[in-house]
Amino acid sequence: MSQQSIVPEEGFLERVSALSHQNISACYFCLRCSAGCPSAFAMDFSPAQVLRFVQLGHKDALLRSSAIWLCIGCETCGSRCPNQIHAGAVMDALRQICIADRVPPGEPKVFRLHQSFLDSIKWWGRLHELSMLVEYKLLSRDLIADLDMGAKMFLVGKIHPLPKRIRGVKEVERLYSKQGAR
């Protein structure tokens, strides 16, 4: 964790609040979100600390953090929050800002996995595990991990060798371009 002092960045709270549609100012730090978070053990900042950094405008530390990438979006935090804040949505918004501001992601592999997943959807209109994993492994340069599990899944027919493109793939592409235009 960085120990430099916090120098609040103006407008950051407003930007994240608008993007996530969450009233982040309402957080009073009961820490229920962090207590129940299944990924918090691996994060550098707990979900409550992430909300705090947003309130304080401590942007740089936040965008470089692993926490925003390690959130699995299970919504345990949001369903328990006494102030109706969905920390998962805030994490999503922070990832978007991270990409938009071209900050190197704090967890590059997670970022690559997201990228491969989205590419697979873009190409085939649905997920094709084999090509997605190939892309992920090339991007992440981590070729050997989990190969044995992959082999088992292939043997029981969970991984199809060839992709099947859906009929409405054009419409899916349009969704992507709309996203890109924003």
Partner: peptide
């Protein structure tokens, strides 16, 4: 800021 444990100015 004792909620993050970081100094703040």
């Amino acid at each position: 800021d004792t909620l993050t444990g970081l100094p703040i100015e």
